[in-house]
Amino acid sequence: MSPMRRSPCGGCHLEIHGQAVTARVSGALWLADERTLAAGDLHFEKGSAYGARGQLLPPFDTLATLDRLEAEIAALSPRRLVLMGDSFHDTGAIDRLTAEARTRLRALGERIELVWLAGNHDPSPSVGLPGVVAETLTIGTLNLTHEPHTGLGEGEVAGHLHPVATVKGTGGRVRRRCFLTDGRRMILPAFGAYAGGLNVFDPAFDGLFATPPTALILGDDRIHAVPWTRLSPGR
């Protein structure tokens, strides 16, 4: 895997399949040469979906996720935003958006190029909103898609699996969202406020990497690059 360098934002500069990228502390991926910001698995309106089933969660996840996304846009001024599937928690989520959330999403699409990748939760994500829908998007040597394909998938950047890493230290175990990469492909963490996580030792990750991957763990103000040998399969 290519050497990593610390970025001023606390993220990590590295190369995926020869393409320069920056893993951001927010969990978004920045492709500076293409002025493209990518974020996966926002799961807008997960709170309202759970509320409809009687599992009461504060219904503020969409606005909280938008706050974080807009902060990244303000910091980076991208020309393109790629939302990498499962942007909405289910096919009825767009109808449950508040007027404020709908206005803010429209404003994003009017300011910059907005690409919605289809996910398993939202196969037609942007009905009534600006932007274009695609199954995949090729940027340089990278292929952005929602769900990782089986096999080694060189150059693939995907979401879907919501990777989280557990590290055991002197003070106990710490479990955080993470990027997962071997330098050939990358799995992004879920960006959504209420999105859960899957431990990187889960069988869903088996066979995706040619060599043991590195977890780029999201800290409070920096990313921590942790080798596979230091990760724990426990919670």
Results as ranks from 00 to 15, higher is better:
26 S>H: 10
27 G>N: 04
27 G>A: 06
27 G>M: 02
27 G>C: 01
28 A>K: 00
28 A>M: 05
28 A>G: 10
30 W>M: 10
30 W>V: 09
31 L>K: 04
32 A>W: 07
33 D>C: 06
33 D>Y: 00
34 E>Y: 07
34 E>M: 08
34 E>T: 08
34 E>C: 06
35 R>D: 04
36 T>V: 14
36 T>K: 06
36 T>R: 03
36 T>E: 05
36 T>M: 03
37 L>Q: 00
37 L>Y: 00
37 L>V: 04
37 L>F: 00
37 L>N: 03
39 A>F: 05
40 G>H: 02
40 G>V: 09
41 D>C: 03
42 L>N: 08
43 H>E: 11
44 F>P: 06
44 F>Q: 00
44 F>H: 12
45 E>T: 09
45 E>W: 04
47 G>Y: 11
48 S>F: 04
48 S>W: 00
49 A>S: 13
49 A>H: 07
49 A>N: 08
50 Y>N: 12
50 Y>E: 13
51 G>Y: 07
51 G>W: 05
51 G>D: 09
51 G>I: 00
52 A>S: 11
53 R>P: 01
53 R>F: 01
53 R>C: 02
55 Q>S: 05
55 Q>W: 00
55 Q>L: 14
56 L>Q: 10
56 L>S: 08
56 L>D: 06
56 L>N: 08
56 L>W: 15
57 L>H: 02
57 L>I: 10
58 P>K: 02
59 P>T: 08
60 F>K: 07
60 F>P: 03
62 T>H: 13
63 L>S: 12
63 L>D: 13
64 A>W: 05
64 A>L: 15
64 A>C: 14
65 T>V: 01
66 L>N: 12
67 D>M: 07
68 R>Q: 12
69 L>P: 11
69 L>R: 02
69 L>K: 05
70 E>H: 06
70 E>Q: 13
71 A>D: 10
71 A>I: 02
71 A>L: 01
72 E>L: 01
73 I>L: 12
73 I>W: 06
74 A>K: 08
74 A>F: 02
75 A>V: 08
75 A>K: 08
75 A>D: 15
76 L>K: 03
76 L>S: 05
77 S>R: 03
77 S>P: 00
77 S>A: 14
77 S>G: 03
77 S>F: 01
78 P>L: 15
80 R>S: 15
81 L>E: 09
82 V>M: 12
83 L>V: 07
84 M>P: 07
84 M>E: 04
85 G>P: 03
85 G>T: 04
85 G>Q: 06
86 D>W: 00
87 S>W: 02
87 S>K: 06
88 F>Q: 11
88 F>K: 14
89 H>Y: 05
89 H>G: 12
89 H>C: 05
90 D>N: 15
92 G>F: 14
92 G>N: 15
92 G>S: 14
93 A>D: 07
93 A>L: 09
93 A>N: 07
93 A>Q: 07
94 I>R: 15
95 D>L: 15
95 D>F: 11
95 D>I: 11
96 R>P: 10
